[in-house]
Nucleic acid binder design. Structure first.
Length: 914
RNA sequence: GCCCAGGUGGCGGAAUUGGUAGACGCAGCAGACUCAAAAUCUGCCGUUCGCAAGGAUGUGCUGGUUCGAUUCCAGUCCUGGGCACCA
């Protein structure tokens, strides 16, 4: 009987489905465990081999936890709103709902072939109305809440209104606008009151800058802007202010930072989030300009105040127009036009080219009244701090280069620490030329300077964050509509009973008038004064992990009982590309829901595992320019060629299958080849896996050819889960051979059944227990590649021992179940077991089988290993020294000298120093 | 530019707290079985000198700490991910 994986996998997938083996109940006496994958965007290209990497890992871990006796929630769903479906609709006229439905069907079929243990009854789709009903509802909770800084939590906006009614603006700690009394509040018009409240709501509407492309009539992502023009079509793109929705994530900045201390994310992941939040302590200072104007700057280095040689404003700064002198007006206008065409990314990245423009205006140093020229430059961004910086060329390299470039004289306040050739950002220098700060160490002077600034009323201590509030509206169609109506300029929430506010059908998916979303093209929508933008991709994904707990509930987004039972996601698996976006948003939503009492925990994910990206290994062919002849990579330098991606599935290693290539596309039917050694060799490059690069590998083909169990184990065998690597199908044979080898421990192709019920020997039990220990710890540590290799070692050793004993094999099968469930279940039933292996009890490791008495100690002379000597593990230093020095090989290396020192590490090694 | 991660044989990778570098697998070479092939099995397999025994050298690069460094420190180069409207 041979290993017929296709029949076996089909048989057990059917049985598991019939017995509802993966159905999960919220009502179980067992401890709960929640393993979650970042759900996929169902793209039209279908699943490629990169997707399952994390899914297989989480599936293994879920099955492992189930064997360990937990009630495991391991759901899957689809992040099904998004731009690609909309683009596709613009191009083909097909409704995104239809293409999305079709894509999801493909994804599910592909996932099922790999044998995942999902409970599909719990599937969620962000684009389905019974899901986005609750996304809209949650948005309204954000809209109806404010962050009470005094209480350090979100509260209903009603509590804020009550404060205003009783104490006016003085009752609110963080109030920054024009002060008003309780009486004044009641006398305000509805509009005035709402405008004030809008400054507090956690979801609020305000004006913000976007990349605007007039020709396309639409807003573009930074990604879609290249060199100041649109990626599509190459049209000019400018910055434009538009009404937008935002989430007040900055209110949670400190709690998002603190929360990192109680979750298990990798240090680098926490570091990325901390840097994104970018908390810094410093002070704000006013630089007077004569007249009413003054420039407020934010700095973390007030100690360098006497080294300020110029101020730089962001080109968007509100004072730019009013302070520019007539003389400079023309150059400033030209510079502003130039900056408008630049993306934020470009503005920060290019330092080689220093740009800026003098406004003609001067400000005064608040301490000594020194006149300081005011410039504008693109490297200062309006969104950070106050949009204005004080430049200290001797201490900041960018300021230094700017000063050099524009010939601005540099003041040295750090004496010999500044060499005139580059800035020195030290905090350890003693200050000079610094008035009352002279003689102080810089890091001590910071505090002194801030105190002086505050006492003289020139500014105040300030904590600043790099993080900005999150833009929450998109001028697009395929997203959640906002449950908001605009009445006389006031945003009014729809009633809960009106949810879901369903996406209407549109005739065309292109933008509406004035850059509004496609919904603005619908007359009835406009007549009802409904908000015409939609929510961004991350709206639905900010809370989906809660919906899986209670997916069918039509009374609430997730019953409190369900979220109390499952609690936080125990393990969350996904790519680092979501490090700052999705992970911060979902952490914020969770905190809001916690504050408002809807759930009992304020961090969504207890532990995060980052999976690496599987890249594609692209192959290229080289067409001689203007001909239909292709030249092999080794000879391409002799010709002028165009490089073309070729489907990796037509290439074996680097060698092109020329016949298959001719059949690939009609254009290539009659091509000629210039070959080397009768072979056509392709070029190669590692790139992102994508359909357009023809470097995708479809898991279906591999599952068909080798089976799901082989495919699962091979993906794990590729390397550490968190590492990125290019896909290479080559090694899959080895894993397949391993499973066949395992099969032969049970069955012989000719003789049939070979397993038996004999008693296992010590040697066999040693192999088994070493494997139990290794597999258990590797699985716990997500080190699946070494686990697979441990299985291989185990099967190799059992093969050598000719061990086909049920006592040993049965336990091995349980260990293997999470990795290769189909073959494990089949062999488990062949051994005569009645229940499913999915619910077997995990084997218990016993150390007694592994105890050793002796060790082959490596013995080094001056750090170089010269020999191995077998010594008892109980031997102490003196005993070991004696044995070692008597050894012939060691004596030869000693050359008669006596050792200076002998280092002995028990159980490890011996090193002789001479 | 800024933030984060990674560089080990022909290839994917392994190596508890600093303690025998290259486990496991792929590819390759030689052999067994076979009419032949497939499958399977056995041996070899970093580079280099050597008939061999054995030696030298080797974890991106340059230094440092140490009896001992793939592992720790400083610097540097290269690759990948993110940088706020791709998901």
């Amino acid at each position: 009987m041979e290993y017929n994986y296709r029949a076996i996998e089909e048989k057990w997938q059917k049985k598991w489905s019939e017995s509802e083996a993966y159905r999960v109940s919220n009502d179980s006496p067992k401890l709960s465990y929640y393993v979650l994958d970042m759900f996929p965007y169902p793209s039209g290209a279908g699943l490629h081999v990169g997707h399952p990497l994390g899914y297989i890992a989480s599936d293994i871990f879920s099955r492992y936890k189930r064997l360990k006796g937990y009630n495991v929630l391991h759901p899957m769903g689809f992040d099904s709103f998004g731009l690609p479906a909309e683009q596709y609709a613009i191009e083909t006229g097909q409704h995104p709902a239809d293409t999305t439905e079709k894509n999801i069907k493909t994804f599910k079929a592909q996932l099922d072939k790999i044998g995942f243990c999902y409970d599909w009854e719990r599937e969620v789709r962000t684009s389905s109305p019974d899901y986005y009903k609750w996304t809209q509802w949650l948005f309204l909770q954000l809209f109806k809440s404010w962050y009470n800084v005094a209480a350090q939590k979100a509260e209903s906006i009603d509590s804020l209104i009550k404060i205003f009614e009783t104490s006016g603006s003085g009752g609110v700690k963080q109030y920054a606008g024009v002060a008003f009394s309780a009486e004044e509040w009641t006398s305000f018009s509805k509009k005035q009151q709402e405008d004030i409240l809008m400054n507090f709501r956690l979801a609020y509407s305000s004006f913000g800058e976007v990349n605007w492309c007039e020709a396309l009539g639409t807003v573009l992502a930074n990604d879609e802007v290249v060199n100041g023009v649109s990626e599509r079509g190459g049209h000019p793109v400018i910055k434009k202010k538009m009404r937008q929705w935002y989430l007040r994530i900055t209110a949670y900045a400190d709690r998002l930072l603190e929360g990192l201390n109680k979750v298990e994310f990798s240090d680098s992941m926490k570091e990325m989030q901390r840097n994104w939040i970018g908390k810094s302590e410093g002070c704000e200072m006013d630089f007077r300009m004569g007249g009413a104007n003054s420039i407020k700057v934010y700095t973390t280095r007030p100690d360098t105040i006497f080294g300020v040689d110029f101020l730089v404003l962001a080109p968007e700064h509100e004072l730019v127009q009013s302070i520019t002198t007539d003389e400079q007006r023309k150059s400033i206008d030209e510079y502003l036009t130039y900056v408008k065409s630049r993306s934020d990314r470009e503005r920060m990245a290019e330092v080689k080219q220093i740009t800026g423009c003098f406004t003609g205006a001067y400000a005064e140093n608040p301490f000594n009244g020194k006149k300081i020229p005011v410039w504008i430059a693109e490297y200062v961004l309006a969104g950070y701090g106050t949009g204005a910086i004080m430049a200290v060329p001797c201490g900041d390299q960018r300021d230094f280069l700017f000063a050099k470039h524009f010939n601005i004289p540099i003041t040295n306040i750090i004496g010999s620490h500044f060499n005139g050739n580059e800035a020195n950002p030290t905090k350890e220098a003693i200050l000079e030329n610094s008035d009352f700060l002279n003689g102080l160490l810089m890091k001590d002077a910071i505090k002194v300077a801030i105190e002086k600034v505050e006492s003289l009323g020139m500014g105040k201590r300030k904590i600043n964050y790099k993080m900005r509030d999150a833009g929450f509206s998109r001028q697009r169609y395929w997203g959640e509509p906002f449950p908001i109506k605009w009445e006389d300029g006031i945003a009014v929430a729809l009633e809960e009973s009106q949810l879901p506010l369903e996406l209407p059908h549109v005739e065309k998916y292109g933008p509406g008038p004035e850059g509004e979303g496609p919904l603005a093209n619908i007359e009835s929508w406009r007549n009802e004064k409904l908000e015409t933008s939609t929510m961004p991709g991350y709206a639905g994904s900010s809370w989906y992990f809660l919906r899986y707990m209670d997916p069918k509930n039509n009374q609430t987004f997730c019953d409190r009982k369900a979220s109390d039972y499952w609690g936080q996601v125990d393990v969350y698996i996904g790519g680092t590309e979501h490090a700052v976006g999705h992970l911060l948003y979902s952490r914020m939503w969770t905190k809001v829901l916690y504050d408002l009492g809807f759930i009992g925990f304020d961090e969504p994910f207890k532990k995060l595992v980052n999976q690496g990206m599987i890249q594609g290994s692209s192959r290229f062919v080289y067409r001689v320019k203007g001909t239909n002849t292709f030249v092999s990579a080794g000879l391409k330098d002799q010709h002028e060629t165009d490089e073309l991606h070729v489907d990796v599935n037509l290439v074996d290693g680097m060698e092109l299958n020329m016949e298959a290539f001719k059949k690939w596309k009609p254009d290539f039917a009659n091509v000629d080849f210039i070959v080397e050694n009768e072979k056509y060799i392709c070029g190669s490059e590692v790139e992102k896996m994508s359909k357009s690069k023809y470097n995708t590998v479809n898991p279906d083909d591999l599952v068909l050819k080798y089976g799901a169990d082989t495919f699962r184990m091979y993906e794990m065998f590729l390397g550490p889960i968190e590492q990125s690597k290019p896909w290479d199908t080559k090694g899959i044979e080895g894993v397949h051979r391993f499973l066949r080898k395992l099969w032969r421990l049970f069955n012989d192709d000719l003789k049939g059944k070979v397993w038996n019920e004999e008693k296992a020997t010590d040697a066999e039990l040693k192999v088994l227990h070493r494997t139990i220990k290794k597999i258990e710890s590797d699985t716990e540590n997500f080190s699946f590649n070494t686990a697979v290799s441990a299985f291989m070692v185990c099967v190799n050793e059992l093969g050598e021992l000719k061990c086909s004993k049920k006592e040993v094999l049965e336990k091995l099968l349980i260990l293997l179940t999470p990795y290769a469930p189909h073959i494990a279940e089949e062999l488990w039933s062949q051994l005569g077991n009645h229940g499913s292996v999915l619910d077997a009890a995990y084997p218990v490791f016993e150390n007694k089988y592994l105890v050793e008495t002796n060790k082959e100690y490596p013995v080094s002379v001056n750090g170089k290993v010269r020999t191995n000597i077998n010594i008892s593990l109980s031997a102490e230093q003196s005993e070991v020294e004696k044995v070692v020095l008597e050894d012939a090989v060691i004596q030869k290396w000693l050359e008669g000298k006596s050792p200076k020192k002998i280092i002995f590490v028990k159980g490890k090694m011996v090193n002789i120093v001479i």
